[in-house]
Computed example of a mutant assay.
Amino acid sequence: MIAILLLQAAEPSAVPTDWSALAPMPYVSEPHMTPQLNAFVGGEVAAGRCVVPKPADRHYVVKVDVATLIDASGVIRKTVPHAISCPTVEQYAAGLVAGFARGNLMPRPSTGNTWYRATIVFDWRG
């Protein structure tokens, strides 16, 4: 029992506090944002569910960092979006990271659970 507790304590499952120190997601092919993916965020902003500064040129850019825990076999165990005061967009970004990673991660040595950082950039004209 004590050995199990020690093993669980050694697993890096707690969300890291310094996200800038996380390695980038080991994508085989970098994901590409489509107009449809950006449109969801544009709709959230237009509906007033997300408050972002309105740019003078009407060109919006919203970035969401997502910490992602990947196990030794390459399976995503947890995605945690960085708070940007817009829960729907935060969760949308976390879901996109999981989807983009499916079948698209570089093989890695079996080192246990490892945290990575992905940044999703939503870019549209409003």
Rank of each mutant, 00 (worst) to 15 (best):
R125W: 10
I2S: 13
R77C: 04
V61I: 15
V80D: 11
D18M: 06
R49Y: 11
N38A: 14
A118G: 15
D71Q: 05
G112E: 04
A118T: 08
D65Y: 01
I84A: 07
N38S: 15
T68E: 03
V52H: 11
G99P: 01
A67K: 05
I70K: 03
I120P: 04
D123W: 01
S85Y: 09
I2R: 12
L22D: 02
T79F: 01
V62E: 05
G99L: 08
A46N: 10
V52I: 14
A3C: 03
P12A: 15
A46K: 13
S13F: 12
M106Y: 00
M106Q: 15
A83G: 08
D18I: 06
W115S: 01
M25K: 05
K54P: 00
I120K: 11
I70R: 05
A118V: 00
V61K: 15
Y116I: 05
Y60S: 08
A23R: 14
V80N: 09
P35R: 10
S110Y: 09
R108P: 01
L69H: 02
M33Y: 06
W115F: 09
G112F: 07
T68Y: 01
H82Y: 07
L5V: 14
I120G: 00
F122D: 08
Y116F: 15
R117C: 04
R102P: 01
V15M: 03
L22E: 09
M25V: 05
A67L: 04
A3S: 11
Q36K: 13
C50I: 07
W115D: 03
R125F: 11
T79M: 02
A56S: 13
A39Y: 07
V41K: 03
G42M: 09
G42A: 08
Q91R: 14
P53K: 14
A9R: 13
V80I: 12
G95V: 05
I2Y: 09
L96V: 04
G43C: 02
A101V: 08
L37M: 15
V66E: 02
N113M: 14
E30W: 00
P107H: 12
L105G: 06
P87I: 07
S85F: 10
F100L: 08
A101E: 05
T88W: 04
C86R: 07
N113C: 08
I70G: 04
C50N: 05
I2T: 13
T111K: 11
G103P: 03
I84C: 10
K54M: 07
K78M: 11
V41L: 06
G43D: 14
Y27Q: 05
V66D: 02
A83C: 02
G99Y: 03
P16L: 10
S29M: 12
T17N: 12
T17K: 14
P16S: 08
K63I: 00
A14E: 15
A101N: 06
A72Q: 13
V121H: 00
V89H: 04
Q91P: 00
P16H: 09
Y116V: 11
T34E: 09
K63F: 03
V45H: 06
F40P: 00
P31G: 09
G99W: 02
V41N: 02
G42C: 07
V62Q: 08
L37Y: 02
N38M: 05
D71W: 08
A118P: 00
L105I: 10
D18Q: 14
P12K: 14
Y27F: 15
T17H: 12
S13G: 00
T114D: 06
H82I: 02
I4P: 00
A93H: 04
V41P: 01
A118Q: 04
M106H: 13
L96A: 07
K63T: 10
L96C: 05
